[in-house]
Structures are given as C-alpha cells and as structure tokens.
Write a protein that binds this DNA or RNA. Structure first.
Lengths: 351, 351
DNA sequence: ATGTTAACCGTAAACGTTTACGTAAAATAC
DNA sequence: GTATTTTACGTAAACGTTTACGGTTAACAT
C-alpha cells in the first residue's frame, strides 16, 4: 500500500527510471509504444510524483509562508482567504504561523520559514515588530521574496516592499461623510502614537477637519490601548460627560466602535440621531450590531490576492519584488450608525 | 549568499559530508577536535540543515494539512489557533486549504495533501461532504492519520476517528437554563434535516423539553438554510406573529440569533424580558451585540489542540489513530439575552 | 612480532526525481 | 557496403541529507 515511485514502474516494465520519467513527461526521445506502456502502468499503480523529491531537485517548494498576529481577526481571515484563492490557482500551498503580537515569535517564524525553504514570506506585522527593526532587517534575505502587509517599516539599508490599504484616503472619505451628514463635532478614539497605522488615521482625521474648518478639540481625541468593547464603552461615556460634547465618534476599529455604541446606549444617547459612530475595517461585527455600524472597508481579500500575485511574479526571478509600497483602495460603507436620514433597505456590501 | 550545505563545510575542512554530518550530530565516532572544527565552521557559515532533504530522507514532512469550509468563521479560527499552538510546540507546521463548502474541492485538497506528503490530515467537513461519502472513503489511506473534526461520518468499511464538541450535552444544558429561568415556550431555529449536526441539536432540544414536560409545538421549530442575519430576523418576526407565541428562541448559530435579536427589536419585543434568545457556538458576536447573547460555547481552541495531540501520538506508529469519536465538553455562557434577573458585572468568558 | 581492538574517518547507498551525456541499433545516405 | 544520421534508451550525476559498512592507523595485549 506504499506510494509507487518511478522505480516501481521501471521494474514492472524492465526498464530504467530515466525512461519512465521521460515517458511521463512526453519527451520526444521516447517511442510511442514505450510511452503507452509506461503510462498504462503508471495509471494502474496510480503513480503521483513525490513532491518532496521535486522540491529538493528544483530547490523550490511551492509553499508560501505567512505570519499574522491573530487569526481570529476578521480582517486577517479576509486577507488569508484572498491569499489562498490566488495561491491555489497557481499550485502553491500556504504555511501559516500565528505570532500573537509577540515580535520575537515573529522573528522566529521568519527564520523557520527560511529553513523550510518556502518560496516567499508574507507578514502581517504586529506593532511591536518595529521595535526590533534592526534584527528584522538583518533577517530578510534577498533571494526570497518578502512582503510586509498593512504596515510600513522603514529600514536603513534595505527597502522592503509592502502593501497596505489606503487608510488616509479611507479616513478622509469617512470624515467627509460625517461632515456631509451634518455632524459638526467629530471625536476620534485613536491608537497609540507609536503606531504608524494609528498615526496615519489620525493625521487624515486632523487634516480633513482642518481643511473643512471644523472644530478640532484635543479633548475629543483619546488614545486606546486595549482595543476592546469595554474600552470603547468607557471612552464613549467619558466623551459624553464633557461639557462640550462631540456629536460624532470616529473609532480606530469596529470593536471599539461597538463598545462606543454600547456606552452611548447606557448613557441614553441615540445613534445616529444624537451622535454618529464610525468604525474602521468593516468587520463582520458592523452588520450585526445595533444599530448597524458604518465603517471604512479595507479590501482584505483584494490585498491577499494582490500580495500573492506580486510574490509569484517575482519568485521565478529569484529577487525581491519591485520595491514599491502598494496602496489598495478603501471605501466607506454607510450603515445606520451615521445616517440621520433612514437608510432604505440594507446596505449589504459583503457577499 | 546561497544556503550553506554539508558539502560546503566539508570542503572548507578538507573532509567529507559524512564526517560533518556526524560531527554535527555529536556521534561518538568523531573526535572532539574534529567536532569542534566542524561546529565552528558550521556556525561561521550559519549552517541550517535543509528541511526538504530531511523530508525526503526520512519520509516525513513535519507538515500537517488542514481543510476547512470558511476561514472567516470564528469557530474555525479558534480551532486553527489551537492547532497552531500544539503543532508549533512539536515542530510541526500547518498547511491550510479553504473549501468554501464545496465537497469536490474538499476531495481535491485531500488528494493534494497526500501528494504533498503531509504527515496527517485534518478536515472540518462541510455538510455536503457526506454526499460523496463513498469517494471520501476510498480516498482515505491507512498509513497517514486522518481526523474528522466536528462532524461524524459513518463509513461502510472504514472507521475514521473524529472529534467533536458535545452538542447534545451543551444543548441540553442550554435548554435547561432557559427552563430554570422561567421560560416556558421554547422555540428552535434549526438546521436542515440532512445535517447530523443540526439533528443532534434538535434531538437534544426535543428530548429536554419532553423530559421536563414542556410544550413541544411543531410551529416553533423552523428550518434555517441561509444561516445569516436576515434569515434570523425574518424567522423571529414569523414566530412572533403566531397566535401561540414562544417566549424563548434557541438558535442553531450566533449569527441567526443576532438576526433574531434584530427581528424582535423591530417587532417591539423586549429581550430578555419578553423573549429569551440563546445562540450556539459562543462566537465573538455574542459579546458585541445588544443585548449580549447567551450562547453555548464550543471549545474550539481545545478541540484544535486535542486534534493535533491525537495525530502526533499516532504519526510515529504510521497507523491511523484510535478509532474513537472523541467528544469535548461544551458550556452555556450566560449573558443578557436569557437573564431576566439583571446580570451583575459582565461575563467575560473569553480572555 | 603478531593478533586484537579501539578510535576515527571515508565510501557509497538511499530517499525520488530530472537531465546531460553516452551508446547501441536501426534507418538513411551515397 | 560503408559512413552518417536518427531513434531510443541506459548511465550517472545532481539536489542535501543520514547511516551501514569498510578501511586505516595507532594502541594494546600476548
């Protein structure tokens, strides 16, 4: 019941593995009669080439390694799904590793993947990874494509390509949407200042308010660090206890936004009539909470697909991919939480 | 900049790869001086054994393949995370494939994984897979451990081990909880009758009602087939339009339950005062919806870990694992949607 | 001085492929 | 009928390991 090899077929036909191999590959130097006999036996034994042997021979594993902080984040699963689709189309398999926001594990996994002869490495870095930037830089090899997703890390020596969603554009569009809907005092629950991602979103928020001559109140900008529902709830209540209350809250993530919704409800404040709430990422939560949450859609699946396409186009050239930072379009998905005028029908963006 | 091999080290030391290999493995037949010299050079060249070559040599890949229907389901990510933890501990990597509920893709992926020489295969089958039971049965080999997760498929010839959560027990506990809280007319939005999973939950629901002399009204048992929010919403409204209204709704999934919450709100019905809602799976949705949703927790992470442990314990024996069907404990997580008496504090089950 | 043993290392086969090179027989050329 | 080409296949090396087996030298025993 063991797997049949070229040797088995060769023995059965009293020939050599070279001939068998060539016959199966339809090489011209093999006679038709031999080809037929070989194929017949191969079929009979249901021969399948040994992938490991091929890997060794061609120094190519048809495997792509991807590292992410946490699998249970909707956005991560979307990106991975996109990768799986595109990788599958091209005969590649995905090896996965979860870092749990531990930068040392991230470095470990990168090393491991190199040792496992993956053909490319993708990483969705945690914020902390930039703390060991120098170590990371030393680790990255030039012979195997490496791609950083959704985060831009500036190295001293190397330029490593990256792909990310257009958070600045998306945020701008989102804030504009709030302004267009008549909200005048827009607050922002932002991420830590050490996070490029959080900064980009904050800058977009700030710039957009300035450009539109809106009030930019420092009391309305609060740092998150737990990014969970409880934090959103607490911060919403804090915002509502200000003398000069905001009438809209733009949140760094959907989970925080859901917390805000909950906090506002506890404070007896109506959404979207009194206060609008805008999330970020357009996760699956946005459609199930009450009221449904407007959010800035990050094209996870598209990013995943694009990532793999980028890598594959360069795997064969054995050099790292075009050193650009690719930016993918975002989009504001309007739902109930920001719509003073009732929405007609549901906005079912997701399929 | 190419990877260093045994050959490189051997050449540098004017010896042979055999000696180098043995020195690195601290074999007794190598002198200490040679060992030191070899290790020094190996270190200098930062030698790492080639995993592909080892795979070929030992006919072992240290890779485990897992197939699941959809990555973006919270429960799936939980199971996978558990697998990743346990696999990582043992030096195994996970290869993943998403079937999108397509049974032919599932069969395809199984074949592919066999060809890729994975050391074990895990599958979270879609309901449809049982439709091609015979093909599946023929595919499964005896020399590589195979494990079915969260679904029991009875084969004619083979007995394939499986692991699943105790849905019967969990449901029983859940219905009892409803009864204990004074709900007397319990409805059930169930899955299709072709689904073993849905049937188990229904049977538990039915048995528990009978055992407790509760009303078992056929009008209160409705089939779902879309399992999305809209369906839950519509069915809730339908239930509330009955003359003999239920006062509790047990749902096949959290998403459906969230839809029910929404439908009840639209119908102006209070939860949990008028009607209780109980979900299944205890997904991340349960904590963010309003009111928060009581749900039956399936131990995803534990199932993932246990699965890998089972497989690993049998990989070395090159035979399939103990042919039992392992059942993992479930648990009712009580939140607002079933608690007529206000909950004190939040029930933060998840870490 | 010879045999025995231990210490140490090299040779080569094996895992399953692909393919450059060599070679025998058959076919073609003149 | 000999030279040349073509056809068709075998040999062996290569990918990077591990390891059974063999061999050489030196130490030790008798």
């Amino acid at each position: 019941m063991t797997k049949t090899t070229l040797k088995d077929i060769a023995k059965a036909l009293n020939t050599t593995i070279a001939t068998v191999s060539r016959a199966l590959h339809d090489k011209p130097e093999i006679s038709d009669s031999m080809k037929n006999r070989v194929k017949e036996v191969a079929n009979l034994y249901s021969y399948k080439p040994n992938a490991t042997a091929l890997s060794l021979k061609f120094q190519k594993s048809y495997r792509i390694g991807v590292i992410f902080p946490k699998l249970s984040h909707y956005y991560v699963t979307q990106i991975l799904s996109g990768m799986l689709i595109e990788a599958g189309k091209n005969g590649y398999k995905m090896l996965i590793a979860e870092s749990n926001y531990n930068q040392f594990k991230e470095l470990e996994y990168i090393k491991e993947f190199y040792e496992l002869n993956v053909d490319a490495i993708l990483i969705l870095p945690s914020r902390k990874l930039s703390l060991v930037k120098d170590k990371l830089e030393n680790l990255i090899r030039d012979d195997i494509p490496f791609l950083i997703i959704d985060r831009i890390i500036k190295f001293d020596q190397k330029t490593v390509p990256s792909i990310a969603s257009d958070d600045y554009g998306g945020t701008t569009e989102g804030i504009k949407h709030l302004i267009d809907n008549g909200y005048k005092k827009i607050a922002h629950l932002r991420g830590e200042e050490s996070s490029t991602l959080a900064n980009v979103r904050y800058y977009a928020y700030r710039d957009c308010l300035l450009k539109n001559n809106m009030e930019l109140n420092p009391d309305w900008v609060i740092l998150c660090n737990k990014f969970n529902k409880a934090e959103g709830e607490a911060l919403a209540i804090r915002l509502m206890s200000l003398e000069n209350r905001p009438d809209a809250i733009f949140c760094i993530s959907d989970v925080v936004a859901v917390g805000v919704l909950s906090g506002l409800k506890k404070a007896g404040i109506r959404v979207p009539e009194d206060v609008a709430v805008l999330g970020f990422s357009n996760s699956d939560l946005a459609e199930v909470c009450y009221p449904t949450l407007s959010s800035i859609h990050q094209p996870g699946v598209a990013i995943g697909k694009k990532s793999i396409r980028l890598l594959l186009s360069n795997i064969n050239m054995k050099k790292n991919i075009s050193r650009e930072n690719i930016v993918m379009k975002t989009k504001v998905i309007v739902r109930e939480s920001t719509s003073r005028i009732a929405l007609s029908g549901t906005n079912s963006f997701r399929t």
